[in-house]
Amino acid sequence: MFEQTITHHIQKHILSVLLHQKTVRFRDLRPPRTDTNLFSYHLKLLQQHKFVEKIEGGYTLSPLGLSYVDRVNADKLFVRRQPKMITMLLIQDGYGHVLLQRRTKQPYIDTWTLPYGKVHIDDESVLAGARREAYEKLDLKSTAPRHVGDAYIRVKTQDELLSSTLVHVCRFELDEYEESADIKWCAPLKLSDYDLAPAVEQIVTRSFFGDDFFFGEYDVEL
């Protein structure tokens, strides 16, 4: 998908007008007191980048344009900073041990977490995203996860918001998995022996026994 932030005031004006109407004629898209050639240039740029389409009766937002305006502030058309959405995999063996994975990048590098990954826009469902992450991160091909809960994690440091994450917790049962330097089985009562990423211990506690679907909110200060 083409990724671009629209910053030019003429292009933002065009998108702002199309945001509130299905189809707009050429003359109604032009900002007041703007040279026609300059306006035409920026309209063509939006068409070239597939944000705007010309149809019978005028111009309209393309599918990419619709996706873009869905992500921006409606008044000033800047891209909103939004929480990251991930699937987090609670993988348990027959003894109740959970699989931990060491983070190898910032933020929270070298801490231990449940395996996780971002939800993709083309994932057909939360569980499909979890299965994809299980395959990509751990090479697990035959899995039947269960969506057991959601968590919202906000992490601050020195009064600055470091991260904001919506977590879909999906539970897997697994007979065995070979450990490595970055992947370890851990007994739940031994979690405190590890330097854990924010809210991991709380999430394991809430979802470990497979009780009713849960939702938790966690504010963490580092």
Rank of each mutant, 00 (worst) to 15 (best):
R171S: 13
T157P: 00
E160A: 13
S164C: 13
R171C: 00
C170P: 01
S164N: 13
D175E: 15
L162W: 08
V169I: 08
E178T: 11
E173G: 10
E160N: 15
Q158E: 15
V167I: 15
Y177M: 01
K156S: 14
V169T: 05
E176G: 02
E173Q: 14
I153G: 01
R154I: 08
S180R: 10
Q158W: 08
S180L: 07
E176R: 03
S180V: 07
Y177Q: 03
S163M: 14
L162M: 12
R171V: 07
S164F: 06
L166Q: 12
E173T: 08
T157L: 13
D175N: 10
T165Q: 11
R154L: 07
K156P: 00
Y152F: 13
R171N: 07
T157I: 08
L166M: 10
A181Y: 11
R154A: 11
E179S: 05
E160F: 13
A151H: 07
K156T: 14
D159I: 04
Y177N: 00
V155W: 06
E160T: 12
Q158L: 11
D175S: 11
K156D: 13
F172T: 01
E179C: 00
A181C: 03
V167C: 12
A151Y: 00
Q158H: 14
E160P: 07
H168T: 06
A151D: 04
R154H: 04
I153F: 03
Y152E: 08
L166W: 10
R154G: 07
T165I: 14
L174W: 01
E160I: 14
I153R: 04
F172V: 00
H168V: 02
S164M: 10
D159F: 13
S164H: 12
L161I: 10
E160G: 07
E160K: 15
A151E: 02
T165D: 08
E176M: 02
F172P: 03
A181W: 04
R171H: 13
C170I: 03
S163F: 07
R171A: 11
S180W: 05
S180P: 04
D175R: 08
Y152L: 09
L174H: 05
T157K: 15
Y177E: 00
